[in-house]
Design a protein around this nucleic acid. Structure first.
Length: 109
DNA sequence: GGATTGACCGGAA
DNA sequence: GTTCCGGCCAATC
């Protein structure tokens, strides 16, 4: 790209951010799934990129395996799920977890 | 170039 | 159901 690369994020970060941005409303992905979609790194690598550059992507749609929310943003994420209509387990009003059985998104493919 | 951190995963007790 | 362990990868200091 002529004008130059994106300064802060690296190639791996770009891939991760791209995938997260493409997650449609009402759906979610686990860190491990995002790593698989980008075909690089692992769950930890994705989590780290999100921690630095996730500010520009719907990070609330990226959750841990098992359907639990991010460790430091569960309150914010829960509000988004109620707005987007994401399927929640344990009662949507309580929203303790996400229903991965219905909300799991399989990448842009 | 080395060490530390970070929003993790999966299995086992 | 919860808690502990090691392994995994990337960015930052």
């Amino acid at each position: 790209m002529a004008t130059g690369d994106f300064g802060p994020p690296s190639e791996f970060a770009e891939e991760v951010l791209e995938v997260v941005e493409q997650i449609p409303p009402g759906m979610v992905l686990t860190y491990g799934d995002v790593a698989e979609v980008v075909g690089r790194g692992g769950p930890r690598g994705v989590g780290n990129v999100m921690a630095r550059f996730g500010s520009d992507v719907p990070w609330w749609r990226v959750i841990r395996a098992g359907g639990h929310f991010p460790l430091c943003h569960e309150g914010e994420a829960l509000a988004r799920y109620r707005e987007e209509g994401t399927p929640l387990l344990g009662g949507a009003l309580d929203g303790r977890r996400v229903d991965l059985s219905r909300a799991r998104w399989s990448g842009p493919a």
